[in-house]
Design a binder for these strands. Structure first.
Lengths: 185, 185
DNA sequence: TGTCTCATGTAAGGGGTTACATGATTCC
DNA sequence: GGAATCATGTAACCCCTTACATGAGACA
């Protein structure tokens, strides 16, 4: 359950409430969760149970009371151990590839519409990613190295969109060439 | 629920049993499901309910009886409409990026071990993908264009691994340069 | 008056996973 | 004798999502 460790990670910068965590999660794209209440408040309960975090209720005059969570010593140890643990390969869900797999049911025109729609979609995602102020949500950098790490994360996301864009452009060319050669015959 | 349409797609080649579908799903990497019974037999029930497939029980002497599913006319229409529907962008789950995000807790040595483990992991995935006989599981090609589509799908998967490999190599270089510059100071 | 922000939680349900259950045959 | 293949299904559980519930203050 990486979401628990991700929360620990965010708390390693500073104490935060569930509400804060939710906003940070929603504002960052390398955290693959929607940042819904259900997950976050449940995760905080679990982290409390394992003594990885402690919480303190803070009363506010003009706002509802909030629970501020702070990472513990053993929480930091857990976070570091997780950060060192053997990495897994990524898993991609690409429903577009499934559509393409049965694309032979479509005409060349329909296929090209499909491909161009996908191209535009990926372009939009890429632009949104490039506009986004990187990883600023996660607290101030603790070292120059940490800044580099965040840039690398950002690069990875951007590169995966760029790779898909390259691919789709070549795919469109390949299919239009095939179309031309077939209409000549 | 793309799995239902994926099953329709596989049935568009030929009638198949749930067991056949499971094996095909497990043998192909662009279908992001484990191909477990629960999903497949439930999906077949649902497809039957909507009259997108019909089934026929075939008795066998040396094996258990099997239910062979056949796609209907309306199932084919549904499949084609889905194939034309507006494509979504891919979604990637990259737990490694989450680990990297808190990588500043590690030493340079620990970080490089982590990066090299990831590099090897992606290399292994890439090799497995390149060894795999593409999309041969899904029935014989119905047209030259379909063959091209399958090659494109295969390319996409391979390219996404290659893009990540490129990235991790550059990441390691960037971090080792930073390390060198810091140890000089 | 209505919507937004702050703030914590619960409910219902979809989608996915592994493991279990059964039972014959085939291959080492 | 033991594992693998053929074949269909169920059970338990995890993770994640949207929507609901409450309730005050700010802002237009």
């Amino acid at each position: 359950m990486a979401i628990n460790h991700t929360i620990l990670g965010m708390l390693s910068y500073q104490p935060l409430t569930g509400y804060d965590l939710k906003k940070r999660m929603q504002g960052s794209s390398f955290m693959p969760w929607s940042g819904n209440n259900n997950q976050i408040y449940k995760a905080l309960l679990e982290l409390t149970k394992y003594d990885f975090v402690t919480s303190e209720v803070v009363h506010q005059d003009s706002f509802p009371s909030k629970k501020v969570y702070t990472i513990t010593e053993s929480g930091l140890v857990e976070l570091k151990n997780w950060a060192k643990s053997k990495p897994e390969a990524f898993e991609a869900k690409k429903p577009f590839l499934l559509q393409l797999a049965w694309g032979d049911l479509l005409s060349y025109e329909e296929l090209d519409v499909l491909l161009s729609q996908y191209e535009r979609e990926i372009e939009i995602q890429l632009l949104m990613e490039q506009k986004r102020p990187a990883t600023k949500q996660l607290g101030r950098s603790r070292s120059p190295r940490e800044t580099v790490l965040w840039e690398l994360i950002n690069d990875n996301i951007i590169l995966s969109y760029k790779a898909d864009l390259e691919w789709i452009k070549n795919a469109r060319i390949a299919l239009s060439k095939l179309h031309d050669s077939e209409s000549v015959e």
